[in-house]
């Protein structure tokens, strides 16, 4: 039981990390990024190939994976999403962007299928994959490292948004697009950067997941829906919320399954999700009035 709780917390924080990018992008652009899972897949593949070619540690891959995913996100936003944004500026419920991100998701997934084939790939890092004992509870080192990376990345991001110049500009844009652009902030530049950061976090999540997970072209699909649930639980746009949402999901999955069949836990998650939406749609940490 103790191990189940520990696993729930560790997995939950990692789920939270996969959702941080999503919640950031929503907070600023007010767009649900359906390509989230595809970006995660890209991060996983980037890490995988880095480890395969250099033979080093997956955590070292961050040096390459983070810039790669950042620029991927940056330019996808610049060339594919921005045009739709501009044409939908006056539309009350912009859904064109959702469709575009879905199109990007299909393109990325199937590009990976054409390039790398359908087979499953893992990397073997014996030094971190073995479960170790902490006060009699068991968890693999890879997940413990993942936990600390998740907390650190979310903390850094939080700090960056709060204190850095760029971060302040991002927050200003997310609160009021028009006012921000009146103050000389280039709205679309901010969007590009935000999207880049969001996808870069997916890249980090990829490096964290790979040591105990696997990668194949449609791997993101499973995490996609999970991430939607997490961000709404925590409150769309809230970074601590994403982490807390992730923890809740991780705990339900891990601890709940000790009492009911594992295949039922997902149903419990959906029901809790719907209840939260109906009762408190702003989520646990969300800003009021956005839903």
């Amino acid at each position: 039981m103790g191990s189940a709780i520990l696993n729930g917390i560790l997995m939950g924080s990692i789920y939270g990390l996969t959702a941080v990018g999503l919640t950031l992008i929503f907070g600023v652009l007010k767009v649900i990024n359906f390509a989230q899972g595809a970006f995660l897949m890209s991060g996983l593949f980037a890490t995988y190939w880095f480890v395969k070619f250099t033979g080093t540690n997956p955590y070292l891959a961050l040096v390459v994976v983070v810039p790669f995913t950042y620029f991927m996100g940056y330019y996808i936003q610049k060339f594919l999403i921005k045009p739709v944004f501009e044409s939908e500026k006056d539309v009350r419920e912009p859904i064109g962007v959702i469709i575009v991100t879905t199109g990007i998701w299909y393109m990325l997934d199937n590009l990976a299928l054409m390039l790398f084939g359908a087979q499953y790939r893992t990397i073997n890092v014996p030094s971190v994959s073995k479960a170790i004992s902490i006060f009699g509870l068991y968890a693999p080192l890879s997940k413990i490292i993942g936990f600390f990376i998740s907390i650190t990345v979310s903390g850094l991001l939080f700090w960056f948004l709060k204190y850095s110049k760029m971060g302040k500009a991002i927050r200003a844009t997310s609160q009021d697009r028009e006012a921000a652009s009146l103050m000389g902030i280039n709205q679309y530049k901010i969007y590009n950067v935000t999207f880049g950061i969001g996808t870069a976090i997916c890249g980090i999540a990829g490096a964290v997941l790979l040591p105990f997970y696997y990668v194949y072209p449609t791997v993101g699909m499973h995490l996609d829906i999970m991430d939607f649930v997490i961000v709404v639980l925590g409150g769309l746009g809230s970074i601590p919320g994403a982490l807390v949402g992730g923890l809740i999901i991780g705990l339900i999955e891990s601890v709940g399954s000790q009492f009911i069949a594992y295949s039922w836990t997902i149903e419990v998650i959906y029901i809790i999700f719907l209840i939260i939406l109906f009762v408190k749609p702003s989520g646990l940490f969300g800003v009021k009035g956005e839903f």
Binding site: I99, G103, Y106, N110, L113
Partner: peptide, 19 residues
């Protein structure tokens, strides 16, 4: 011949039509 190409094209159409 090339699994995945058909879905790739579908994705491309979605993006192009929306733009």
């Amino acid at each position: 011949a090339l699994p995945g190409l058909h879905l790739f094209i579908l994705g491309l159409i979605l993006v192009l039509v929306m733009i």
